[in-house]
Every structure is written in structure tokens, then in C-alpha cells.
Design a protein around this nucleic acid. Structure first.
Length: 737
RNA sequence: GGGCGAUUAGCUCAGUUGGUUAGAGCGUUCGGUUCACAUCCGAAAGGUCACUGGUUCGAGUCCAGUAUCGCCCACCA
């Protein structure tokens, strides 16, 4: 009596059941075996503020394929899941919700309440996300699940901050930084994106102090002239050579400022003379440093002119600009104005125009960290797939600048620094030169020091700022394994094997992990960086909510099954290349899942004894069975072909050509095995050829399921359990040799 | 101003170290109703592999240059 098997594969009937079975069996949790080399992937932790999108589905699928493949090779395999608190992203996201639903700001709630609410929010998002990862079939080890704000991870973050401070790698400095007025925080250079905007270049006459004439400067931001502390020209510019060292009267003020020569000035631009406002322009800040110019702040963090702006104090930037222009015009000091397109920095999160400001921030001195991180890639200790990204990485690393790690946010790791209340020095006089060597009374410590070492009596107050999210992310490959404690996990699984992530975060994340990994542990954090591309829509557009072309991966799973989505995401794609996604594609691979199901269904119905003759264990036994059989020449060719395909697949998988392996499997299974071989052999399933024909088809089916399993885990497992019930879970089976 | 990538069938894209008639999905046309699967099968149309030159017995694949498009980095006020 044959059991009735449905005509189509029904993912809904199988997926949840199979996933629970896998998870409950403990198959995702590796056993530490010192005799064997582990295979480890730390999952890039998704932001705990939203649902999974199609890009997550891509990386989850790629990593799951790698992990399932290596698990089937018999390696102790760890795929460690987690979530990121995503400082600025989550805070901005949650503030929007707060505004919309309760019409409140973070200040209305206060820091403590705000963080508590956001934590609650993040927990809920995490739980939902973990459910979605399961829907995709992610075979990660949930017993080791981590969150960046977990107490042990946080402790490791504070530990690292202190270690770096003690090693002189962290300093607090008054620097010009990118300030986002909307988020009210400083940003790193990477969090700023430049966009072209229409502007106007204003040529202003600055009278020479000796009354001999004018020097004309061009600027897009006339209002900042109130904070000018010099005019600069190129040292090789003949026009201005004799003016260097002279002074000019700064219009609208009673100040006189010098003319200096600096190579950063472009002779060709404007008049070749440039006003220098160290407090409000990064280039000017650097020129100012070279010439020891004072830094004069005329724009505050509230986007208004400061008291130092004299008559203009309190005006918003645009109003100040209008008034400055009007006043200059009245005095006849405007030479001309021309339309001018130039690029201006915007906050990568909220798209608000950033304002360069001088403020006190914490920085990581990057050069000592970058050097070994460059070497690690140059010597091949760390390899990139595809390797062209090594150039991108090196190009950036060789020009890297100090890293601003403080954020004026509430959501994140609060900087473990404590100030003496009686000599706080929190707000220093920013008009003074920053390199005055001022000393501040603070202690670096995770917990509040029992006694203030400075005044001996105050309760110390903690730094208000939090750390850049990427600081804790940079430690992720080892804080997840228990570092700085020498735990069994850390000892065994570190350094990890593969870091699989998007090329868009090479600088944000990959570079920082390499630098901090080597610094903290003395070893590279991973051997291989696999870069996945962006998922684009059918027309190749970037996917975004505003374009309305989002593809919800879970909706695709609901409609076509996880196997179909997975196969649609990876088949025929190459590392580092963007990939397109469409419902058509998913539908096509749903048909493939069904094809697998039906091939098995046919064999189960037509072939007697297959299910009752388990070819258990190492694949060698399957071949032994075949060798004992009277195979004809055609059988031998068919089996040799399959053997060749198997070797090709294994070779591709080992080289991380996952998309190609998937495509080859698809093509072989459907168009060779189903269309040709089953059709050919189905007439031989009775009579004297029955035994051999059965064995050949059975062998290929069974081993195809093994090879296919990393790509389409659900349908292969469903078939496996239907046909070979007694043999256990497919994901713990060995691959064909 | 530097760096990187793309250009292959109507559309979206693969093509591993150079090797026989260049592939897939979707779409198009024609033919198949029992015999695993119409979420299927068989067949067909459709490509000077952007252009030019070079290396080679042999180039979609390697080299140089050109064109178009795209991306990243950078302090041009």
C-alpha cells in the first residue's frame, strides 16, 4: 500500500513543523570538538528597530547556505545570531513614532524614561525579527543569541574603551565635527553624504588695514565671515605675494585679521583668496591649526548666531545671512554674486543639512590601528570575495582619519567617563585655542567611582554622550563569544571563518572590526569577507519605501514558500554584484521546489523497495551498493556524469560561488535528472533491469537532495522524511563524496 | 580630483583559471488531455557578447585604448 502524497509541495504544511524539529533537536548548536576545526559565522546583527527587508533575506540566505553546507561536511558549525541597538537609526526612528503617536519629544520623556521605552520597543522588534529569521529557515544557534546592549557585551565595550584610553588611543578634543541640527548630535564623516545644491557665490571686499585697497574673497556662506580669523592665499600666487603678512579690516566687525599663505588654497577658484572661518568649515579649521589662528564660534548648536556675532546674535542662520549681505551691500563691499552649484553635507539618517561646528568630542586615534589592519589584508590573512573590494578597503584605510566616536544621543553605550562635579570643565571656553593643553578632571570607569579622586568629596557625574553604534559593532565578532573572558566559545570559535555582509558597510563596519579585532585580541577577527550586493527591483532600481517598490520577504514566503524565495535570491547571482528581485523569479523557483517534490513522489510511487532499503550513512555505502549491481554502460555514464556534477558543485561551494552552484543544481536536477533520466529509466523499472534502474535513480535522487539541501532546506527535508523516514534530519547528513 | 564597476536574447541577469554549436528566468510562437508534476512536457524564434586594436592555434573571457551609464571616496571656499 502506497501512502497518498499530495500532487504539489505545500510549504505551509511543512515549514514551521520542520523548523521546530530542527531547532528542538539541537542541530543548530555545534559541539565543541578540539580535534576538528570549527566553521564560524557571526551574523551581522540586524537593527532592532524594524522588520526584516529583502536585503536581510539575501544575507540570511547566503549565510544559511554556507552554514548548512559546512555542517553537512561534518564541521562543528556555529552561526551566531544577534541584533544591534543601532544608536542613531533607532533613536531617530523611535522619536518619529513618539512624535506621531504621542506628540512628544525625547525631552518630554527625559533620558531615563526615553531609554526605557526604546528598550521595550527594541525587544518587541527583536522578537518579531527572530520569528522572521526562522521563517526564512535560518539555521542559527539561538542558544547563543546576542544583543549589543546585553550586560556582558556592554561590559566588553566599556572594557575596550578603557583599554584604548589607557593605551593613549582615545582622546577628547575640541574639533570641528559634522553636526546634525535635527538629530542634535555630532556625526562621523561616514554618516554624512554630500549632495549638490544650488547656491550663490558672493564676492566680498575686505579692506586692507593700511588703506591701500581691498582683497576680494568668495564665499557661499557670507554669515560665517563674522567668525573669520584670517584670509588665506596660495603661497605661489604671484598676485598676492606681497600681501601675505599684512592685515585686513574685517567688515561689520571691529577686528583686524591677518593674511596668511597656505597650500590648501586653490589659485584658480574664485579670486584665489579665501576667508578662513576655523569654527565653521573643516578646511578652514585645518588651515587655522597650521597657522595657530583663533577659533571663533559664531553659530551655535541651536542653529542661531552666538553672542560672538555681535549685532547678529540670536538670528537664525538664514536671517543672519540676509542681514550680513544687506549690511555689506550698504557699505559697497559686495563685488558681485554668481549662481553656483556646490555639494553640501547632509545627515545620512534624516537628510538634514549638516552644520560643521567646533565641539568637544571623543576620538579614536586611528593610525596605530589602521597599520596592522592594512597589513592583514595585504598579506592575505584576510581575503575578500570578490577580491576587488580589497582595493576599496585599502584605498580608504590608507587615507583614514581619526574617528569621532561620541554621539549626543541617549540610546547606546554611555561613555564610561566620570567628571568631577566641582571642577567639571565640561564646557570649556571654545573660543580659546583648543591646543592649550587644558587638563580636565575625569576618570575612565564603567561604574561610578566611589570617591572623586580630584576634590575627594563630590559624587562624580557621567559623560552625557553615548558611543557611536559602530564602536560596539566593531567588537561584535568576539564580544559575542564572551571576550574579554577567555571562554570556551572564544577559545574555540575565534577567529571566526567568514564575515558575510554588504559592500556598503565596508568602511563603517568591516574596517572597524578588523582594526579593533586585531587590537583587542591580537588576531584577525575573520579569514574571509564575503560581500553581498544590493537587492534591486525588477528594473534595477534601488528598493526604498519612498519608491514604493519594497518586496516583503515574509509575504513571499507566505505565498511561495521559503525555498522559492531563497533560490530566487541567490541562484545565478555572484558575490559583490547587485541582484534583482521580482515575484516572477520567486514563482519560477516555487515551481522548482515542486519539481523536486514530484520527482520524489514519482519515485516513491513507482519504485518498489526504495524506501525500505535505506542506503544509510556515508555515501560510500551507496556506491558500494551500486558496484554490487549489474550496471550497463549507460548506467555507468549516467553515474559518472552525476559524479562530475557533484564534484563541480563541491568545488563551487568551496570557492563561495554559491549562485553558480545553485544554478547548476537547478539545471541538472530539472533538465537532466527529471527531463531526461527519469523519462529514460521509467520504462526499465520492471523486469530484469528493475534493480539497476532503481538503484541509479535512487542514488541520484538521494544525493541530489543532499546537495540541494543548503539552498532549499524545506522541500528537501520534507522529501527526505517522506522517503527515508528512519534516517533522521537531512541537515545533519553528510554530503556525497 | 582620485578609485571601482557595468555594457551578453524583447526584459532582468549568469558565464569558474581563455577551449567544441554562448546560458537561465520571465516574455513570444507552435505542438502535446490518461501514463510523477499544466507550478508540466516537447519544439521554435531571438545575440556581429558596446566599439577599436593587440596577445594566442583559439578571446564573451587576457592586455591597451574609446564611448556610454552607474557607484564610492575627497577640505575646492
Amino acid at each position: 500500500m502506497k501512502q497518498e502524497i499530495p500532487k504539489t509541495f505545500d510549504p505551509k504544511a511543512w515549514e514551521t513543523k520542520l523548523y521546530n524539529q530542527w531547532e528542538d533537536s539541537g542541530s543548530f548548536t555545534p559541539k565543541i570538538d578540539p580535534k576538528q576545526r570549527p566553521y564560524t559565522i557571526i551574523m551581522p546583527p540586524p537593527n532592532a528597530n524594524d522588520q526584516l527587508h529583502i536585503g536581510h533575506a539575501l544575507f540570511v540566505t547566503l549565510e544559511d547556505i554556507m552554514v548548512r553546507y559546512h555542517r553537512m561536511k561534518g564541521e562543528p558549525t556555529l552561526w551566531l545570531p544577534g541584533a544591534d541597538h543601532a544608536g542613531i537609526a533607532s533613536q531617530v526612528f523611535f522619536e518619529k513614532i513618539l512624535k506621531k503617536e504621542e506628540n512628544k519629544t525625547r525631552y518630554d520623556l527625559g533620558r531615563e524614561k526615553f531609554v526605557e521605552r526604546l528598550r521595550e520597543f527594541a525587544v518587541n522588534k527583536r522578537v518579531a525579527m527572530e520569528g522572521q529569521l526562522r521563517r526564512l529557515g535560518a539555521s542559527c544557534d539561538w542558544t547563543r543569541n546576542k544583543f549589543t546592549l546585553d550586560p556582558d557585551v556592554s561590559a566588553a565595550v566599556y572594557h575596550t574603551f578603557k583599554k584604548m584610553y589607557d593605551d593613549g588611543l582615545i582622546y577628547r578634543g575640541e574639533r570641528i565635527i559634522n553636526w546634525c541640527p535635527r538629530c542634535a548630535t555630532g556625526l562621523s564623516d561616514l554618516e554624512v553624504e554630500h549632495q549638490e545644491v544650488e547656491g550663490r557665490l558672493t564676492y566680498i571686499k575686505y579692506p586692507l588695514s593700511d588703506g591701500s585697497g581691498f582683497i576680494i574673497v568668495a564665499t557661499t556662506r557670507p554669515e560665517t565671515m563674522l567668525g573669520d580669523t584670517a584670509v588665506a592665499v596660495n603661497p605661489d600666487d604671484k598676485r598676492y605675494k606681497k600681501l601675505v603678512g599684512q592685515r585686513v579690516k574685517l567688515p561689520l566687525t571691529d577686528r583686524e585679521i591677518p593674511i596668511v599663505a597656505d597650500k590648501a588654497v586653490d589659485k584658480e577658484f574664485g579670486t584665489g583668496a579665501v576667508k578662513i572661518t576655523p569654527a565653521h568649515d573643516p578646511t578652514d579649521f585645518e588651515i587655522g591649526e597650521r597657522h595657530q589662528l583663533p577659533v571663533m564660534v559664531v553659530i551655535g548648536q541651536d542653529y542661531k548666531m552666538t553672542d560672538a556675532a555681535g549685532d547678529y546674535a540670536g538670528l537664525k542662520i538664514n536671517a543672519a545671512r540676509d542681514k550680513v549681505l544687506a549690511d555689506l551691500r550698504e557699505q559697497g563691499l559686495i563685488e558681485k554674486q554668481v549662481e553656483y552649484r556646490h555639494s553640501v553635507g547632509h545627515c545620512v539618517r534624516c537628510k538634514t543639512m549638516v552644520e560643521p561646528l567646533v565641539s568637544k568630542q571623543w576620538f579614536v586615534k586611528i593610525a596605530p590601528l589602521a597599520a596592522p589592519a592594512i597589513a592583514a589584508v595585504k598579506t592575505g590573512q584576510i581575503k575578500f570575495i570578490p577580491d576587488r573590494f580589497e582595493k576599496t578597503y585599502l584605498n580608504w584605510m590608507e587615507n583614514i582619519r581619526d574617528w569621532n566616536i561620541s554621539r549626543q544621543l541617549w540610546w547606546g553605550h554611555r561613555i564610561p567617563v566620570w567628571f568631577c562635579k566641582n571642577q567639571t570643565g565640561l564646557i570649556s571656553n571654545i573660543q580659546s585655542s583648543m591646543s592649550s593643553g587644558e587638563r580636565e578632571n575625569f576618570v575612565v570607569s564603567q561604574n561610578r567611582p566611589a570617591k572623586c579622586p580630584f576634590c575627594k568629596k563630590c559624587e562624580m557625574v557621567q559623560e552625557e554622550d553615548t558611543l557611536d553604534t559602530w564602536f560596539s559593532s566593531g567588537l561584535w565578532p568576539f564580544t559575542t563569544l564572551g571576550w574579554p573572558n577567555n571562554t570556551p566559545d572564544f577559545k574555540y570559535f575565534y577567529p571566526t571563518t567568514v564575515m558575510e555582509t554588504g559592500w556598503d558597510i565596508i568602511f563603517f563596519w568591516v574596517a572597524r572590526m578588523i582594526m579593533l579585532g586585531i587590537y583587542c585580541t591580537g588576531e584577525v577577527p575573520f579569514e574571509l569577507v564575503y560581500m553581498n550586493g544590493l537587492v534591486r527591483d525588477k528594473e534595477g532600481n534601488k528598493i526604498s519605501k519612498s519608491k514604493g517598490n519594497v518586496i516583503d520577504p515574509i509575504a513571499m514566503v507566505d505565498k511561495y514558500g521559503a525555498d522559492a524565495l531563497r533560490m530566487g535570491l541567490v541562484a545565478g547571482t555572484a558575490a559583490g554584484n547587485d541582484t534583482t528581485m521580482s515575484e516572477d523569479k520567486v514563482r519560477a523557483y516555487r515551481n522548482f521546489a515542486n519539481k523536486i517534490w514530484n520527482a520524489a513522489r514519482f519515485i516513491q510511487q513507482r519504485v518498489s523497495g526504495l524506501a525500505g532499503q535505506p542506503q544509510r550513512g556515508p555515501s560510500g555505502q551507496a556506491s558500494q551498493k551500486l558496484t554490487g549491481m549489474s550496471l550497463n554502460d549507460r548506467d555507468k555514464i549516467v553515474l559518472a556524469d552525476f559524479n562530475k556534477i557533484t564534484q563541480d558543485i563541491v568545488r563551487m561551494m568551496d570557492k563561495y560561488q554559491l549562485g553558480q552552484a545553485g544554478e547548476l543544481l537547478y539545471d541538472y536536477f530539472w533538465h537532466t535528472f527529471c527531463d531526461k533520466l527519469i523519462e529514460e529509466y521509467k520504462t526499465q523499472l520492471t523486469g530484469e533491469r528493475a534493480e539497476a534502474a532503481t538503484a541509479v535513480l535512487g542514488h541520484i535522487l538521494k544525493n541530489s537532495l543532499r546537495l540541494l539541501h543548503p539552498f532549499v532546506p524545506f522541500v528537501t527535508e520534507a522529501v527526505w522524511q517522506t522517503l527515508y523516514e528512519k534516517e533522521g534530519l537531512l541537515l545533519t547528513q553528510e554530503l556525497p563524496a
